[in-house]
C-alpha cells in the first residue's frame, strides 16, 4: 500500500472513528447518570463513591484520546474547520462566563447549573463548524 492509499484509507475510516467518539460520549453520559442515581439512592461506602466518579472519568479520558487520534487523521482543511469551530466554542463560553455574573447581579439571568456550559459549548461548536464549512465550500 502506498502512502497516498494509506492516507485515503485513513480518511475513509473517519466514519468509524466518529462512531467510536459517540460511543465513548454515550458511555460517559450513561455511567455518569448511573453514578448519580446510585449515589443519591444508596449512599454507598467510600470505595463505591470513588468508583462512581472514576468510571465516567475513564470514559471521558478514552473519548479525549479518540478525539485527538481522529483529529490527527483529518486532512488540513478539515482540521482547520474543526479548530475554527473549537475556537468559536471556547471564545463564546469565555465571553458568557465573563458576562454571566454581571447579568445575574443586574437581574437579567437566574441561577444556572454548571453543566449548562456543555450545551453552550456544543451549540457554539456546531455553529462554528457550519460557519467555517460554508466559508470553504
Amino acid at each position: 500500500m502506498t502512502m497516498k492509499d494509506d492516507t485515503a484509507s485513513k480518511m475513509v475510516g473517519c466514519g468509524r472513528s466518529t462512531a467510536a467518539q459517540v460511543a465513548w460520549v454515550l458511555a460517559m453520559a450513561l455511567t455518569s447518570a448511573i453514578g448519580i442515581v446510585l449515589l443519591a439512592l444508596l449512599k454507598p461506602a467510600l470505595p463505591w463513591r470513588v468508583l462512581a466518579v472514576l468510571v465516567p472519568l475513564a470514559c471521558g479520558v478514552a473519548y479525549a484520546r479518540q478525539l485527538v487520534r481522529d483529529m490527527r487523521r483529518l486532512d488540513e482543511l478539515q482540521l482547520r474547520i474543526n479548530l475554527e469551530a473549537a475556537a468559536t466554542a471556547c471564545l463564546g463560553a469565555f465571553i458568557a462566563a465573563m458576562v454571566y455574573p454581571v447579568a445575574k447581579l443586574a437581574g437579567f439571568a437566574g441561577q444556572l447549573e454548571a453543566y449548562y456550559v456543555l450545551f453552550l459549548l456544543g451549540g457554539l461548536f456546531v455553529i462554528g463548524y457550519l460557519n467555517a464549512s460554508r466559508r470553504y465550500r
Binding site: M3, K4, A8, M11, D75, E76, L77, Q78, Y136, R137
Partner: peptide
Amino acid sequence: RVGVSRQTVNAIETGKY
C-alpha cells in the same frame, strides 16, 4: 491521489483555501 478530502480540492480550486 494527494490524500485529502474532495472538499479540500474544491476549496483550493475555487481559491477559498
